[in-house]
Design a protein around this nucleic acid. Structure first.
Lengths: 343, 343
DNA sequence: TTGTAGGCGTTATCAC
DNA sequence: GTGATAACGCCTACAA
C-alpha cells in the first residue's frame, strides 16, 4: 500500500484547492507562507504519502532504473550493484533488480516487463546465452536508454562500461609465458557472443602470437562463466593423453577457474606443479584457495558506479554522447601461476 | 522510456474504441475474434508496450515488491535475493532492491520512497543500527504488508522468516563444550536490538548455563555483523591479560568470525590451538579459510523463497495469518573448533 | 496567491 | 460485441 490520503483529502480538510496543496507540498514559490505551513502540517497529521505512480503518469518519468544481471551469486555482481546504488541513492533513483540466471529468454522477458513499468533506463550485463543482438538494437532504436556493463555489446549505439579485457587477458597470459617459461597454455573460454568471452580469448591469442607460440585447438575449450562450466571444460582438457596436457590454463573468469581447480584436484594433479592456472575477476574466494589464485582484479564497485553515472547522465541530458568507458584492472599475482605468494 | 504508442493510437488506427483495444489486449471474453486479431496484430506492428504506470493508477496494484537488505556484499543476502526472485519471477512481481549499508536512516528513507512508489509489499531485513521499532509498527498499522527475514522484528504484527537462531547458537556453543571440553568461551555479539543479535547471544548463554559454566562479562564483547566489527571486537578481547584469554570464541556470524580470525593471526596465535572459533552463516569463504570455519549453515535461498511466498500470499489473500516461520539450520563441523576436518 | 479545466493511459461501469 | 463516460492522483496551463 502506501497511505490512501490524497491531495484532495488534504484540500477538503483545509478548504483549499488540491492545486494549492500540491504547490505547497512541492515547495513552489507561489504559495502563501501561512497556507504552506497549514498544508505541511495537515499532510503530516493525515499521514500523506505522495503517489509516485500518479506523478509518473503525468511526467512520464519514474525515477526508476532497471538493472539486469546474469548471476547474482557471482560475487562480482553484488559489488557492482553496490556501486550502482551509491550513485542512484544520491540521485533518488530506485533500482529494479532482475537476475536472469544466464538465460537470454529470461533476460528478454525481464526487459519487456521493465519497459512496461516505464523505467527511465536500463543497466544491462548480458547473459551468457545471448544469441541475438537485434533484440538490443531494436530496444535502443525505440529510444530506450541503455548502458551495458561488464558483459557489453559494443557498437550498437549504447554506452558501455568494461574493463580492458583483451589487454588484461594478454597480460596475464604473458605472465605465464615470461615469468614461468610456459609454452603449452590452454584457454577455458567463455561464449564468443559475449564481449568478455571474445575479448579475453583474443587477449590470450595475442599473447601466444607475440611470443611465437603456436595456437593449439585442442587446448581451447569452450566453456562458460560458471563454476560448473569451468569444471566440465577442464575435465575435457584432462581427457587428452597425458603427454598432451598443457602446462598452464587461462580461465575466462574466477568461477570457471575454481571449477577447473576442482577437476584438476580430482585428477590427482598438483597446482601449480602439474598444471598452473590463472583466472579473471578476483573473486572473494581467490585469495583463500589452497593455492591462492593468480587473477585479474576487476574494480566491480567502480564499474557499477561509472555505469550508473553514465546512464543517469544519458537520461537527464539530451545530447550525452555514446561512450565506451574502460576501467583499468590490476594483475593479482598469487601462487596458482607458479609464483611464490608475496606478502 | 517504453513505446509511446497507447491504446488510443491503436484504436484510432483501427477505428474502434480504446475500450475494445483494451479488452482485446487483455484477453477478455467479450470481444469478436476477428476484432481481437486485428488489434493484436496492429499492436505488434505499432510496437505497443502496455503502460503499467497507468494500470497501477487504476488498480492501485503495482506488482512490485520492495526488498530492503542491510549489506549486499555479505554473500548471504544475494543468495536470499535469488530465492526471492525465484518466487517473484513466476508470479510476475518485480523487485525494488535497496541496500541500506547497515544504516537505519537510509533504511527509513528507502522505505518511504518505496511507499511513494506504491509497492505492494515489503521484504525487510533490518540494519544493525535499528533503534526504533515504532517506525515499523506505524508502517504495519497503516496497512503496509511486510515480511521480515533473517533480521526480524517479531511480535509487532508482521510475519517473519528466520532460522532457529537461539537453538543453533546453543548447539554450536555446546559443541565447543561437549566435544572439546572448553570451559572458557567468549562471544562476539551483535546488536541486541536486532533479533539475530539477541537470539544468538541467548543461545550462547543457554549453553553455558546448561553446563554450569559461569558467564564472564569480559568475554562478551559487543561487536557487529561486519568483518570490521569482528576484527575490532576480537582486538578488544585480546587486550585482556594473556591468562584471561578464552579458549574459544563464538562469533555472531561468519564475517565477524573472519574479522576475528584476522585479529587472532595478527596476534601471532594459532587456531584452534591457542583459540578456537566458530561462526554462523556458512559464508562462501568459510570452507576455504586456512583453518576451515566451523559454523551454522543457513539455507539462504530457502529463507528468501519462503519470505517471498509468505509476502505474496499476504498481499493476495485478505486473511492470511501472521506467522513466525522458522527454517532449520545444520551445523557444519570443520576444523576451526578443534575437530579434524571431515571429508 | 489561488482556483479551474483538462489530460497523462488505463479500466470499470453502464448503456446500446 | 462495442462504445461513451468517469475515475485513478497528480500536474500543466491558464484564468481570476
Amino acid at each position: 500500500m502506501g497511505s490512501d490520503v490524497t491531495l484532495k483529502h488534504i484540500a477538503e480538510a483545509l478548504d483549499v484547492s488540491a492545486m494549492t496543496v500540491s504547490r505547497a507540498l512541492n515547495n513552489r514559490s507561489n504559495v502563501d507562507e501561512k497556507t504552506r505551513e497549514r498544508v505541511l502540517q495537515k499532510a503530516k497529521s493525515m499521514g500523506y504519502t505522495p503517489n509516485h505512480v500518479a506523478k509518473s503518469l503525468v511526467s512520464s518519468k519514474t525515477y526508476t532504473i532497471g538493472v539486469v544481471i546474469p548471476e547474482i551469486t557471482h560475487a562480482f555482481f553484488p559489488e557492482v550493484v553496490r556501486g550502482i546504488e551509491e550513485v542512484t541513492n544520491t540521485s533518488d533513483y530506485q533500482l529494479f533488480l532482475t537476475n536472469t540466471n544466464e538465460q537470454f529468454d529470461r533476460e528478454k522477458d525481464a526487459i519487456h516487463t521493465l519497459q512496461s513499468k516505464r523505467v527511465d533506463g536500463l543497466l544491462i550485463s548480458s547473459s551468457q546465452t545471448v544469441d541475438d543482438y537485434s533484440f538490443y538494437e531494436q530496444l535502443i532504436e525505440s529510444g530506450t536508454e541503455i548502458v551495458f556493463f561488464d558483459r557489453c555489446i559494443e557498437g550498437i549505439g549504447a554506452s558501455t562500461v568494461c574493463v580492458n579485457d583483451r589487454e588484461s587477458a594478454r597480460q596475464i597470459t604473458e605472465h605465464l609465458i615470461e615469468s614461468h617459461d610456459f609454452t603449452k597454455i590452454a584457454h577455458l573460454s567463455g561464449p564468443q557472443d559475449v564481449s568478455i568471452g571474445k575479448k579475453r580469448f583474443q587477449g590470450y591469442l595475442e599473447a601466444l602470437k607475440m611470443h611465437d607460440l603456436p595456437v593449439q585447438d585442442q587446448w581451447i575449450i569452450s566453456g562458460g562463466f560458471q563454476e560448473r562450466r569451468g569444471y566440465d571444460a577442464m575435465k575435457k582438457l584432462l581427457s587428452l593423453p597425458r603427454s598432451e596436457f598443457p602446462e598452464a590454463v587461462v580461465a575466462v573468469n574466477d568461477p570457471s577457474a575454481i571449477g577447473a581447480i576442482k577437476a584438476i584436484k580430482e585428477a590427482g594433479l598438483a597446482i601449480p606443479d602439474d598444471i598452473a592456472i590463472v583466472g579473471f575477476t578476483d573473486d572473494i574466494r581467490a585469495p583463500l584457495l589452497d593455492v591462492p589464485l593468480t587473477t585479474i582484479h576487476q574494480p566491480a564497485y567502480g564499474v557499477g558506479k561509472q555505469a550508473a553515472q553514465k546512464l543517469i547522465q544519458t537520461i537527464e541530458n539530451e545530447d550525452e554522447p555514446v561512450e565506451d568507458i574502460v576501467v583499468p584492472t590490476t594483475m593479482k599475482i598469487r601462487s596458482s601461476c607458479g609464483c611464490d605468494e608475496p606478502d
